[in-house]
Amino acid sequence: MSRAATTSDVFNAIAEPARRDVLGVLARGEQPVGEIVAALDLTQPQVSKHLSVLRTVDLVHCRSHGRQRLYRLNGPALRPVHEWVSAFEAEWNDRLDRFDGVLADLQRKG
C-alpha cells in the first residue's frame, strides 16, 4: 500500500514531532501564531508551515480576529488516530481479560 502524501493524511501529518508539539500547544486553547512560536523552540516560518499542513488535513482551523489570525485544534479530525490506537487497546484488553479468567480458575482450584 503506498503512503499517502503528508498533506492528505492525518497520520502522516502528525508523524512529524514538531507538528505534534504544535497540536499540543493548541490543545490548551485557541492561539495566534506568535503564542505558538513563543511556546516552542521553532521559528515563525517553521510554525506557519506546520500550521499550513495541519490545516490542509483539517486538524487545525483558523479564523480572523481583528488583525490577528487565531488557530485552534479540530478535535474530531483526530478521531481516526484515536480509533487506530483503541483497536490495539481492545485487543490487549480481550487478551488480559482471558488471562484474568485463567487466574481465577487456577485460584478456584486452589
Partner: peptide, 16 residues
Amino acid sequence: RANRDAQLASGMERGL
C-alpha cells in the same frame, strides 16, 4: 517510531 506505530496499527487490521 515507524515500527512502534506499525504495531499499534496491527491491532486495527486484526480487529477489522
